[in-house]
Simulated scan of single mutants.
Amino acid sequence: MSRLAAAGTPFAWLLLTPGMLFLAAFLVVPGILLVMLSLRDVDGMLMMLPSYGFSQYIKVFTSAGYLDALLTTLWVAGLTAILCVLLAWPAAWLLVNTRSRTWRTVLYVILISPLLTSVVIRTFAWIVLLAQNGLINDVLRKLGLIDSPLALLWNMKAVIVAYVQVMLPFAVLPLATSLGEIPASLPRASHSLGAGARHTFMHVILPLTIPGMMSGAIIVFALAAGSYVTPLLIGGRLQPLLPINIYQQALQIANLPLAAALSLTLLVVTAAVAAAMSAVQKNWERRVYGH
Rank of each mutant, 00 (worst) to 15 (best):
Q249P: 02
Y247H: 13
I234D: 00
F170A: 07
R188P: 00
G180C: 09
L175K: 03
G212L: 07
P240N: 10
Q248W: 04
Q165I: 02
E181Y: 07
A158M: 01
A197F: 00
N255S: 00
V172P: 09
G196T: 00
P240I: 01
Q249A: 13
P187E: 01
V166L: 15
A224G: 08
L262A: 02
E181R: 15
F201G: 14
L175Y: 04
G226V: 05
V164A: 11
I246S: 01
Y228V: 02
Q249E: 15
V159M: 09
I246C: 08
P211E: 02
Y163S: 10
Y228K: 01
A197M: 02
S190K: 12
Q248S: 14
I244Y: 06
S215F: 03
P174R: 12
Y247N: 14
V220F: 03
T177S: 11
V220E: 10
A176L: 09
V229S: 07
I253R: 07
T200P: 04
A261M: 03
R237W: 06
I218E: 07
M167N: 13
S185M: 12
V164S: 04
L241I: 14
Q165E: 12
S190N: 13
P240C: 07
G226T: 04
G216Y: 08
P169K: 05
V161L: 15
P174K: 05
L173T: 04
A197Y: 06
R198T: 15
Q248T: 15
M202N: 08
G196H: 08
Y247M: 13
P169M: 09
A162G: 13
P257L: 04
A222H: 00
F201R: 11
V166K: 10
V166W: 11
P207G: 05
L251R: 14
P183K: 14
P174H: 10
L233I: 14
V161R: 00
P231G: 12
A195S: 05
L186R: 11
Q248K: 12
S192Q: 13
I246K: 02
I219Q: 01
S263I: 02
A261G: 01
P243G: 00
L208V: 06
S190T: 01
P257F: 05
G180I: 03
